[in-house]
Design a protein around this nucleic acid. Structure first.
Lengths: 182, 182
DNA sequence: CGGTGAACTTGTCAGTGACTAGATTGATAG
DNA sequence: CTATCAATCTAGTCACTGACAAGTTCACCG
């Protein structure tokens, strides 16, 4: 797992328990979901007492918050690979279908973070490119909301349909944004 | 709560414990979410032993499944009040924002049910009205997916913006569906 | 060398879901 | 009327979990 900060004279101090906890919890959540996450099992997997995590996370909720930030970080990183609204939409949908647990985590209760803001900004910028520079702020907000909504719904709804349907939905969004623009 | 089936000589048999459990669990979930639901607290609230629910729901998951059906029933009932894609979209968004816990429940893990199918059918019929009779089946599928996605995303995404933004997003969806139609 | 505080351990408690065995009841059959 | 009997509910228990309290180890600093 994570490297120890220094050669430990004994095993008493783990060295980087906080990161190790996040990493282990991450794999559990990615595989089995949040319900399957328990502080005790994580502690046991790391060979550490059941109360050790309490020193790094006051709460289970506090650990989940850290996982949530991590999920947004990976998601925003993935979105950065896309150029333009269509490409970002494809990445969004692909990511959400490949990692449903992470998306569930991202949109669960909790505060926003820098990575969430980064993701939103990427999508909004793509909409701005599509609309041209003369668009008003209010109109940009509304069109961005439409783009986000369509892509997010497509990504998270249990809709049958492969890449072909995805492309058609992106067609609708692009065409709609362009033709409903004011 | 629910009426007893017959006048009970004693309190031993509740009379309609199953319905009472669902009703109590429903209020808990609607107010505090699924995490706050426990079989024991429901049993205690009904003045019944902690193991009584096991006779009606083999499992906690089984109770949750019943709640899920109930959530879809209310949702589909609400959608029936809407005429046309715009109206259904408004109702969808309004419902989801008024009852976020129910929506979380509806789209959680579990099997589909008749009420879910009814809701989908309503939305799909509204899209069909918009597209006219000559549309192909595959195209109707794709356009319905676009409509569902847009409305669902708008309803569930934490997007700032009131009715005005909702109307603009519906503009985009209508315009997009009409102009991307093949 | 001794103190200080962070990191970790051990012990414990209450709440939870699930399981088992047994008690109570109302309906049904004889 | 009475003897069953299945459904319903109670009581007791187990394993697991999150949270808390108190003690232990260790690195570091003066």
């Amino acid at each position: 797992m994570a490297a120890r900060r220094k050669k430990p004279a004994s095993q008493y101090h783990h060295g980087d328990l906080r990161s190790a906890i996040v990493a282990t919890a991450w794999t559990v959540v990615a595989r089995d979901g949040l319900e399957a996450l328990s502080l005790r099992s994580v502690a046991e997997a790391l060979g550490v007492s059941h109360a050790a995590p309490a020193h790094h996370f006051s709460d289970k909720a506090s650990l989940v918050a850290a996982l949530r930030v991590e999920a947004w970080r990976r998601f925003a990183d993935a979105l950065e690979a896309g150029q333009g609204l269509r490409a970002i939409g494809r990445v969004y949908v692909k990511f959400a279908r490949a990692h449903p647990r992470q998306v569930q985590l991202m949109f669960g209760p909790g505060e926003d973070n820098e990575h969430a803001a980064r993701a939103w900004a990427l999508l909004r910028a793509a909409v701005m490119d599509l609309l041209g520079p003369k668009i008003s702020e209010a109109e940009l907000d509304a069109m961005s909301a439409a783009a986000w909504s369509g892509v997010h719904g497509l990504a998270t709804l249990p809709i049958a349909g492969g890449d072909r349907v995805t492309e058609r939905v992106l067609d609708v969004l692009e065409a709609g944004i362009v033709s409903a623009r004011r």
